[in-house]
Structures are given as C-alpha cells and as structure tokens.
Nucleic acid binder design. Structure first.
Length: 301
DNA sequence: TGCAGTGTTGCTTC
DNA sequence: CGAAGCAACACTGC
C-alpha cells in the first residue's frame, strides 16, 4: 500500500536513523526463478553482484522518486527499492534464525506482524540492522549507478512529482489531458501522468474534490480541474503529516503505524453514510478498470 | 473449506 | 498504437 506519503515517510526515517552508517553485511531469502537474469536481487546471481557492490559502502543519504526509494552509497551506486504492495523497512536489533531474522526487543514496536516476513537484511556499522519486510515478495530491489539515474529503465518513464513546487495547476492540466478520453480515477493512477498516487489516495482526492471517479477527463471544467489539483496537493501532504496510511501492513522504519486511515472519507467505507456536511449520500464501491473505487453516490458528480 | 479480495507496475495480448 | 488483463506472490477474511 505504500503510495507517495508512505514512501516519503520511509525515506524521512532512513535519513534520520541510518544516514552516515556503513553496510557491513547483507542477507536475503529472496530467490525467484521468474527473475533469473534480471537486475533484481531475487536472482541469486544478481544478489551476489549486489552484495559485492554494497559491502563496506557508507549510506550518504536517501531520496524518493515516485514510489521508489533511492539509497545513495559512497561508491556512487544507488540502491533502488520499490516496495510495491507489502514492502517496508524496519530498523533495529535483529537476531538470525535458521530461515529468517527476528527482532531482539520483543517489547518494542518492532515486534509486530511485519517482522514475520523479513526477506532482506543489512547489517550496519552501529551493530543494528535495516531489515526489509515483504509479505508478498512483490518488491523490487536493484542497484543503479549514479550516472545512469536519469536514463534508468526503472525511472525514465515517470511523470512529474505532485508535491514539487514546480508542479503547478497548468502542468497538472497538461498531464491529465494526455489522456482526454480516460476516466479521471484511472488517469490519476497512471504513473506516467503523475507519480505517487495509488488506490487509497485517488479515492480520497476525488471525494474531497467532489468529482465522480468515472468522469471523462475532457469533460472536466477548469473549476473542477482546480478542485482536483488542490485536493491532490493537500491530501498527499496530509498523508505525510499523518505518518502514512497503515490500512494494511505499512509501518515506518521504527515499526510504528501511520494514522491516515483514521481520516479516510471514502476508501473502504462502502455503505457508510457520507461524512460531508449536509450530504445524504452513501459511499458506494465499484470496479473501475480492475480497481475498486469508493465514492459518495451523491456529492461526487 | 475454498476462493475472492488485496494493490503496484511491467509485460503480454489483442 | 492504446487499452485491457494478467503475473509477480501470500496471506486475510468471509
């Protein structure tokens, strides 16, 4: 479920807790025949190369691009991590068992469900560990060189960053109008149009903008586009301010849940009365494309 | 018990 | 070319 706010929360945590530390060991349990020959650590041959290149490197800083985490190392390589559905980093003291690693401090926030699914673990120079939990094993972990950052296949087709100050209403309109016949929900979810928005935030944005998710982009008025643009900026920022959304198993790197799910007005509130003041609507769920959209059947038009 | 639901993205297919 | 659907996975909840 990590969308932009969850990835940003993770990046902020990495900059706060592991920046400046050196990687002294790497372990993984990933091993997938589907990734043989690809630049993905699920291929054991690639992991071997990966390990050689990250060992003894210092973590300089961490950035976010779309939903990717970019960990910059002292040898000019960058660890690129896409958490996909269920991935998240956890920082703390771990001990190795036969098949995985478990948190040492059973009373800490690390001792939650998330620590059951450690697939990758970095030992750090402070004696603690940076573990990566990934229940469904969908995550992507690879290495790119700094000089290839802009041209990397992993990053080159991405649209603009919605929270950048350079992302203006004008640019927003240009981007969504690349798909004039598209349904607005599907266009908001398209990372080549705007990055960082997933199913949860697209529902919450459209609820707040009073726009039906199936509205065709070319039918939207300037006023409506502006409402979506404003809701997009404020809702994503609120997600960050609330430490992300832990509807599913997302946690920050200390293992703590975010609280944005307590502010959901539409997502997974099917059949609840609409919470908008004076609105008599009911939250409805409908498949749009292959995704479930949640929206008010009255004020989202 | 069994199977639908969960959600990101890249690849395949039409 | 674009749109649609599946695959990469594994667990939860009904």
């Amino acid at each position: 479920m990590p969308e932009l706010p969850e990835v940003q929360t993770t990046v902020d945590g990495l900059n706060r807790y592991v920046k400046g530390l050196t990687i002294t060991d790497v372990w993984t349990s990933y091993k997938s025949p589907h990734h043989k020959g690809k630049d993905n650590i699920k291929d054991p041959a690639y992991f071997k190369k990966f390990k050689q290149l990250v060992l003894n490197q210092k973590i300089l800083h961490t950035k976010r691009r779309a939903k990717n985490i970019l960990i910059f190392l002292s040898n000019d390589y960058i660890i690129l991590v896409h958490m996909k559905m269920t991935g998240h980093f956890l920082y703390g003291a771990y001990t190795q068992t036969k098949t995985t690693w478990i948190p040492l401090d059973k009373h800490s926030s690390l001792a939650n469900n998330a620590s059951r699914f450690i697939r990758l673990l970095f030992t750090l120079s402070d004696g603690l560990h940076l573990a990566f939990s990934d229940l469904r094993k969908f995550a992507k972990v690879t290495l790119i060189h700094k000089k290839d950052l802009d041209t990397s296949l992993h990053l080159k087709d991405l649209g603009p960053e919605p929270l950048d100050s350079s992302f203006t209403l004008h640019i927003f309109k240009n981007q969504v109008l690349l798909h004039p016949k598209g349904k607005i929900k599907q266009v908001l979810l398209d990372p080549s149009i705007i990055v960082g928005i997933g199913n949860i935030y697209s529902d919450e944005i459209l609820f707040r903008a009073h726009i039906h998710p199936e509205r065709i982009v070319s039918s939207l008025t300037n006023k409506e586009l502006k409402a979506i643009f404003n809701a997009l900026k404020t809702t994503l920022q609120k997600g960050i301010d609330f430490g992300g959304d832990s509807t599913s198993d997302y946690r920050n790197i200390l293992g703590e849940a975010g609280v944005f799910q307590e502010s959901h007005l539409a997502y997974r509130r099917t059949n609840s009365p609409c919470s908008k003041k004076g609105c008599k609507g009911i939250i409805t769920r409908k498949k749009i494309g292959s995704r479930n959209a949640h929206f008010c059947n009255s004020h989202q038009i």
